[in-house]
Nucleic acid binder design. Structure first.
Lengths: 148, 148
DNA sequence: CTCCTTTTGTTGAAATATCAACAAGAAGAA
DNA sequence: TTCTTCTTGTTGATATTTCAACAAAAGGAG
């Protein structure tokens, strides 16, 4: 009997839910939700980025990112070196407060990642990531048929 | 530099999105969305199930499933051998129309699953699924800290 | 049977994500 | 500069998911 569907889509669904839950809860004291956490993480790691670059990193809709940035800016986590009223092509820059939050997030994420692969050897983990990459690309290809 | 976050959460996000897109689009002619597809798939494969069992299979919220079942019932894809006005503990049964749709879905899913692991040997695929299972369990553990 | 507890399913409200139309700016050609 | 076109970001509307309160039924115990 066909077991692949279960051992794939169901596991992926569980993983997605767990990741979102972790991102939502770890920084709940700050009022951050999953997309805020992603924004701060990437800005902390990569330095200045534009909104579009941040969308790519986070794999989130630009509307979601736009609204997350409003929240983060209003609450003093970042500023924008805007040449104009909007954020077009402008770099988003973490404030000190933003960097502190970013560091906290990066540390937590690092811990989680350590725990995630408990039970796999280094080699197995490497192989796993390789497989994950291949499968992601295959699926992206398949689903892109529906883009017009 | 820490690459694990990218090679994990981002890939998982992409996979989730692709899966949902495929499920949404493959049966769009029928007006099915992702949860409808999951319901029909499992009912087709496993025969009669209760709503709760279906929630477990689909990894969906019971509210989502409840509403999906309304749609499927209203449109003649399934009936419920209800002993009462609600669906409590009752078996959900596909009609002929439902079975046809279920078969179509099962075939499509089978095709997709063939394509998903192109580039991996049988052995690599088996190893990959094993790793996926371990990681899922680890993450479920980590995130369950937040359940009270 | 009657009462009590647990399970199961529904419903409306709230939170999130997604989509699509639009507006503002950038970039380049003439 | 002044068009024109393409990119980038915002906004409101809509769809979807999630949460939590509730209600109906089931399963026991007495």
């Amino acid at each position: 009997m066909e077991e692949r569907f279960e051992t794939f889509t169901v596991l992926i669904a569980k993983i997605s839910r767990s990741i979102r839950k972790i991102k939502n809860q770890e920084m709940a004291d700050y009022g951050f939700k999953s997309p805020h956490v992603s924004c701060l993480y990437y800005l902390y790691r990569e330095g200045e980025l534009t909104a579009t670059e941040l969308c790519e990193r986070c794999e989130e809709d630009k509307a979601t990112i736009s609204r997350s940035l409003n929240y983060l800016e209003e609450n003093g986590y970042l500023v924008c070196d805007c040449k104009n009223t909007k954020r077009y092509k402008s770099n988003l820059i973490l404030t000190e407060k933003g960097k502190e939050a970013g560091k906290k997030i990066a540390d937590k994420i690092s811990n989680v990642l350590d725990e995630v692969s408990v039970g796999l050897s280094d080699e197995e983990r490497t192989e796993f990531y390789r497989g994950l990459k291949i499968i992601t690309d295959n699926l992206t290809n398949i689903s892109s048929k529906y883009d017009k």
